[in-house]
Every structure is written in C-alpha cells, then in structure tokens.
Design a protein around this nucleic acid. Structure first.
Lengths: 335, 335
DNA sequence: TGCCATCGTCGATGCGCTTCGACTGACGTT
DNA sequence: AACGTCAGTCGAAGCGCATCGACGATGGCA
C-alpha cells in the first residue's frame, strides 16, 4: 500500500506538506505543489479512507436510505438513486445504500459508527417514526418527501399537491366535467406515505375549485385489480371522461383494458399519468404526463446535503413545481 | 462520541478486553462478557468504522458497480441491488454504490483507498475493459455476468444460453414450427453485453436442434420500434406463431400492438417473456416466462464474495439454471 | 508440595492520516 | 539596522481501534 509517507519521501518533503497539498488548507509554493502532485500520480497514491476518517472525522460518504418494496415504484427509486450517486460523486463523495427495512436502529448505527457524514432518507411517511430519531441524530439529514412535522429537517420533493391540481386543471381546461383518480395501491395509503395523500388533496381541491365531479380509488398493480378499478369507476359515473393515473405500474394494464372496453384514448377518455417522462413514450398512445422529476430531486437532495455539510444549518423545504407535458392521451371530451 | 475506552471504564476492564468481547477472538469469562455487553448497550456504543478499518484493514463494506443506463432493464437492476444490500447486511456488511460510468479509475480508487473489502460488478461485457484491471486489483471481485475470459474472477449469472434454449424448447414442444426472438435494443448488442449474445446462441442452437424456423431482431423500447419490429418479423414469415421476448420494456407495447393487429395471445401467437416473475401478472394475459432471478443472483454474488473474504481463493463460475413458468400466453398453434 | 499448562486479562504499539504550533527565511517598514 | 510580518514548511501529537506479547491466577498432575 502506498502511504502519504511514501509520497513525501518521493517528493522530498514532509508528510504534512503532502497533506496540505491535497487539502489546500495551507498555501504551498508552486514548486513544491508540482513535486508532490507528480509523486502522487507516479505512485498512484490514494489516501486511506479509514485513516482519513479517523483523523478528520469526515468520511466523504453519504448514506441513502431507500425502500425496497416492489409494490412501490421501482423506476422512480432507481432513477433517484442513480442521480444521487452521480451527484454525490460530483462532490467527491460516495454513496452508501441502506434499506428502510432495517429500521431506525440502522440509522443509529450509521450515525454513531461514523460510517457516513450525512443521511438522505426516501419514502417518508406522514408520521414517520424515523423522524424524531433523525432529528436527535446530529448528523445532517435530508428527507426525500415531506412528513407532517419536519421540525428542523430539510426536505425536498415534487410538489405533489400542485401536481394533483395540475392534472385536474389540465382536464378541466379541456372541458372535462367528470374525472377520476387512480391512485397507488391501498398499502401505500395505509402506510400514510406522504406523497399519496398530498396528491389526493391537490386533486380534490382543484376539482372543487373547477367545480367538476371527482372520485378516486387506490389500485393494486395486477391486471385484475386494474380491471375491477375501472369497473367501479365507470359504474359510479358512466359519464367519466378523464382519468388521472398516479400509479405507473398500472399503466400497461389500464390502457389495454380501456381499449378492450372499446374506450379509445383520447377520443373517448383522456388519461393523464404521473410518472417519469421516460415512460411516456413506451405506450401505444404517448401519454400526457406530470413528470416525476426523480433525477432533479436526487440532485437537489445531494446539493442540500452538501450545503449542510458546509455549515449551512438552516433547514429548508424545497417543493419542485410540477411540469405537465401534453402528449397524445388527452383531448377535449366529445360533446 | 462513545469510545471503546468509555465502555471499558464503565465495565471496569481494559479497552482490549472490550475489543475481545466484541470480536470473540479470545476467550472471555462469562462475568466479564456480561459486564461489557451491558455497558455497550447502556452507552449505545458502536465502534468507529474508520478506526476499525485503520487498525484491522477491514471495512465491512462491499462495493457494487451498477449500470445507470435507462435503456437497460431497471427493474432487474433494482431487484438485484435490493437483494445484494439485504444479503450484505445479513453478513454484517454495508453496500457502497458505484456507477459503471465512472469507469476503471473508480475501481482503482476504491481499491487503493481501502474504502471497501471487495467488489461486485454488474453488466459485464464479453470483452469488458474492466476485467484485466479487476484481475490486477488483489481485492476479491465477483462479476455478475460472464466475460469471454474471466481468468480467475468469480462469476455468477443466469445461464442465458440455457434460458434461450428453454424458451425455444417450450414452443417447439407445443408444436410451433416458426419462432422469432425480440431482443434487447441494438445498443446492448453493440456493447457486446454478454447476456444478450449468450441468450441468442441458446435460442439459435435450440431452434436448430428442434429443426424449427427461427429469426431474431433487436428492438428499442419505443412503441414505434416495437411496431416496426413486428412488421419486419411478420413480413419475413407470415406463418410465425411463437415470440420470445428478451426485452421487458417492450412488453406493454408489444402486447398492445399484437391485439391491434388482430393477433390474439395465445390463440394466434404465443409469447414467452424473459423477465422478473413479478412482471408476469401485470399484463392482461399472464405471461409464460423464463424468470430473471435477480434476487437469487444478488444473494449468490454476496455469498461468493463472503467466501472469498473468508479465504476461499479458488474462483468459481456459477450459472443458475433457467426456470420456465407456463402461464396463459403460450399454447399450441392452431392447425 | 512443586511444576507446568491454560485461561482470562492488561498495556503498549501502531495503523495512515490531519492538524496545530513552531520554525525559517525573505521582505518590507520605521 | 533592528524589527515585525507572512508565506511556506516541518515535526509531533493524537484520532479510536485491533492485536500481540506478557502476566497473574488457577487447576491438574506427578
């Protein structure tokens, strides 16, 4: 193993000088800097992460807690993770992956064994049991999602309330008078996952303010569930002309089932989906969507984390405005 | 921060004794053990990861290199990651996430800065440029996928050759005489991703040995691409009755398009998909599949890694046998 | 009774790094 | 000419832990 001493010897300087060259915390003459940098390159030196962590109390590692359920929204989680790890690397940090399943104890462990410098936590529930402990942790913490009482924690998320409203507004503007929301699976609501209820609130509020009829139903992602869900919605209101789908897994089955029933999209029924943009074009009818900006959220989460690590201690809550992209799945209802 | 000294003081023993209680590397009297364990619990002590790494040259961290392209198979990657992190935790290790995009330099960095004890690498290409460097690395390395020349590296993967054959055999056994493979996007072949070519080989071999007609086409995952692909295949052979789909992203569009053409599944055309089992039931017709056992592969990869860390130095190549589950999308062709 | 082996415990050392105080010249100031 | 200043460098200390050799106590055996 190549150590800082080897580099120092090769460059003819003291180890501390090498350290200062690397960290830039003291001024170094150009000549010495060149000498040291060359030795580093020549020897292929990389500081020992453990030693560095021990001496400086910094690990350059960010921990990310992800949910591993498959009933959830895999594409979004993956996209988020991808973006987070990329952003972290851009700040010279690595990403450690933890699972929600391990519970609060894992967070304690990570914090008190100094494995990571900060924590990012996904899939936050309205009254998330982890929140109180996270507050007590005295590590920088950034939540992806917004609990009822963030109390000093930073949060970032899509503004799902606004997203729900945007979907309804779009349909209302096209002239629709009766719309329905097909939501995430019942389990998601049961857990009190915050984005589901926030979206629903936006949906309902907008329906009220636009004075149009609105119903909603959670929906599991098997084909049977989708079919049953449509049965219910159409039975409850045969004049239904607009569908808001906040459940990506359901889209293939849903579109297929609609056609099966002889309902054409968008001629007979309009569909707005909430999903990553990348999914919009995979379907026979390119979908009008409100994008889930997983990539943007991931980047922001990392950026907020870095700010806290840099000493910015004031917590912030960032809600990203929804972006609706009109494609081929929405149109004015037929008179 | 609680240190080993605090625990030692609280328990009235020497720090080294505490260390031995934790590691179990020397015998400890029951009385002392109880005393120490209580102090640990009471103080909420967790060893400092950096200090431990420095003193013992072990980090208890596994690094996992994943591809972050979205043209690839997100669900499979996610499922694999999930399983790997769970398995790693079961062995008291954490998981560090790296991206393929960072290239070989990142692997060097991880190895020589002692961030992780071992490396697991996904998305291996036939002539993967990372392989030679991984061999030189003198860290335990496990590949998920099989390059042309593993040369001393351990590998684990689904036996895609056998999987390709199994799909054809199933269709041939049902009486099909002409089948086609819809493969991953052209980019995947261009990269020489090993599973794609291995699957194709199995597909072709089985077609030959069963003496049935077989063609194949890569396919991007937009709806247009799917549609064009079907045009081609049906034009080339109007008697086509069997489809093998080695490209999950394409399934929704494909099934939809088939129905659009008036081709019923499985009455007019049979479909075998290669995908995670969890996707089989999401479609209007439950799909006959050869499962991609991402979870199993993840667990095996971790297990192989732990074996190497335990001193087992002989490399192994584990190819998991394919499992075909018959559902509703395959049937005998109509006379 | 005396000796040796074994068990359980302790103290000291060092892992590779960061950081702090101190030191050395060179330079400008009065 | 004497002094303060500051950039640039060094040496030493210590971060928290694992590990090794040493040591006392205990018990078995002759």
């Amino acid at each position: 193993m190549v150590t800082i001493n080897d580099v120092a010897t090769a460059a003819g300087v003291a180890p501390s000088t090498v350290s200062y060259v690397i960290s830039g915390k003291r001024s170094i003459s150009p000549k010495t800097r060149r000498l040291v940098e060359e030795s580093i390159r020549k020897l292929g030196y990389h500081p020992h992460a453990g030693a560095r962590a021990l001496a400086s109390s910094k690990t350059n590692v960010l921990a990310l807690v992800v949910p591993l359920r498959t009933d959830l929204n895999v594409a979004v989680v993956m996209e988020f993770v991808a973006s987070a790890v990329t952003a972290a690397r851009a700040h010279d940090h690595d990403l450690l992956l933890l699972t929600k399943d391990e519970g609060p104890a894992a967070l304690q462990r990570v914090a008190s064994s100094a494995i990571a410098d900060a924590l990012m936590v996904m899939d936050i529930e309205a009254a998330d049991p982890r929140v109180p402990m996270l507050i007590a942790l005295d590590l920088p913490v950034v939540l992806i999602g917004v609990p009822d009482h963030p109390a000093g924690l930073s949060c970032v998320d899509l503004d799902f309330t606004a997203a729900g409203s945007a979907c309804v507004a779009h349909l209302a503007d096209l002239g629709h008078r009766s719309v329905a929301l097909i939501g995430p699976s019942p389990a998601v609501y049961r857990r009190g996952t915050s984005y589901a209820t926030r979206f629903l609130r936006g949906f309902d509020d907008a329906a009220k303010s636009h004075d149009i009829r609105a119903t909603n139903r959670p929906c599991a992602h098997s084909y049977e569930a989708v079919s049953a869900c449509l049965d219910d919605l159409l039975a409850a209101d045969p004049d239904l002309t607009g569908l808001v789908v906040h459940n990506e897994a359901v889209l293939p089955g849903l579109l297929s089932d609609l056609r099966h029933r002889g309902l054409r999209v968008p001629e007979d029924i309009s569909v707005v989906a909430v999903c990553p943009d990348s999914m919009a074009e995979q379907h026979p009818v390119a979908l009008t969507t409100v994008a889930i900006p997983a990539e943007e959220v991931g980047a922001q989460a990392v950026e907020m984390t870095m700010r806290r690590l840099a000493g910015h201690t004031t917590p912030e809550v960032r809600l990203l405005g929804p972006r609706l992209t009109r494609r081929d799945s929405t149109a004015a209802p037929r008179a």
